[in-house]
Computed example of a mutant assay.
Amino acid sequence: MRVAVVGGAAAAFGGASWSQAFAATAQPGPSPYGPLQAADANGIRLPAGFTSRVVARSGQRVAGTSYTWHPAPDGGAVFADGSGWIYVSNSEVSSTGGVGAIKFNSSGQITGAYRTLSNTNVNCAGGATPWNTWLSCEEVSTGRVYETDPWGVNAAVVRPAMGRFKHEACAVDADHRYVYMTEDVSDGCFYRFRPNTWGDLSSGTLQVMKGSTATSGSVTWANVPDPDGSPTATRYQVSGAKKFNGGEGCYYADGTCWFTTKGDGRVWAYNATNSTISLTYDDSLVSGTAPLTGVDNVTGASNGDLFVAEDGGNMEICIITPDGIVAPFLQVTGQSSSEITGPAFTPAGNRLYFSSQRGTTGSSSGGITYEVTGPFRS
């Protein structure tokens, strides 16, 4: 996955360190980037050496373009575009949802902005594919997955074989040829889709994870009989399906799929090689005050650090290091009625994009999309 998108190459996730971290959930500790400094002119608290800029605001034209940035910016990803890149962003509003994109040149200047998907319903998160498409997921009870073109050349295509349920995020595992998907309900499931032909999502098999209520151990998978989810919702079709409390972000690298559940403040790790599951983080199992609450979107850096955005909490993006340290990386101030969405790195790994979905107004019309530049670990 990362060959085409974030980081530009396969992730070096330090397997030994993560194996040790899986033995116990991540605990608060000093950030490798140091403490957060006072808020900058954009209201962002960052470590020393980092800067922020606003790249788009909902309801306003993206600088130098004719595209009006969409409301409620949510999940996103970065795609390499020659020496530049493209940041795609969902719009989590009903009926008119869809996806917008901003194109940057090699120096980070905006060179274009446009729509790649229109008139869909509550597009929350999604995932990037190795064949350079963005999967945009609808977060409604019979939500669908749309495969979109970040360049806006090819029309978006709905992918019904991937199931109709309250989709949140997805992550592509090119190693084992699956797409993992989360479901944002309190008794949701964790799914995977196996295309009949790799690179073609028009047909395939939808499966759901099965297992006990334990937070670690072996799991199995079973086919979902009716991916259409009607009249019986997909999460109720398989006896013994493992339940997760509000599935949110989803990210795959180097044999592991990390996903979050907001209902219980957890970051999970699914080992795709040996089909086991474990907890990477649980906000109820930390010593002292939990630095990360309201876990939501998640992405990773090339060195193995996870970056988890908060929906609520302290409006932070927190880092979880491979050696099990969790600490704030940045904080958005003055926007307590919003949530942080869409974190994604550029191919070089030195710029991080994300949005405050409702900005300072607390309304979907007040979204703000940011870029943070600095000495990220490699």
Rank of each mutant, 00 (worst) to 15 (best):
S107E: 09
E138F: 14
D81F: 01
L135Q: 03
V158L: 03
A80S: 06
F104P: 07
W131N: 09
G143L: 15
I102L: 07
L135P: 01
V158E: 12
C124Y: 00
T142L: 08
C124H: 02
N154V: 00
P130R: 02
G97T: 02
G112W: 09
G82E: 05
R115F: 04
S89E: 11
W131M: 02
S107N: 06
Q109S: 08
V153N: 12
V145G: 11
S94H: 12
V158R: 08
E92D: 13
A156Q: 07
G126S: 11
V88T: 15
T116I: 12
S136A: 15
V153P: 00
V153I: 14
E147V: 00
D81Q: 07
Y114A: 10
S141V: 15
V157G: 08
S83D: 14
G127I: 01
A128E: 11
R164Y: 13
F79L: 15
S83R: 13
S95Y: 15
I86H: 05
G97M: 06
Y87P: 02
G82R: 14
S107F: 07
G108L: 12
V99H: 06
S91D: 02
D81S: 14
G152N: 10
S95G: 07
A125I: 01
S141M: 08
S95Q: 14
N119A: 11
A125G: 08
R115A: 15
W151S: 14
G127Q: 01
G84M: 09
V140W: 02
T96V: 12
I102T: 04
E147R: 10
E138T: 05
T116P: 02
A161L: 10
C137E: 09
P160I: 00
W134A: 00
G108D: 10
D149R: 06
S118D: 07
N154E: 12
T111L: 05
L135T: 01
G163V: 00
W85N: 01
S89G: 09
G84R: 13
D81V: 00
P130H: 10
N121S: 05
W151T: 15
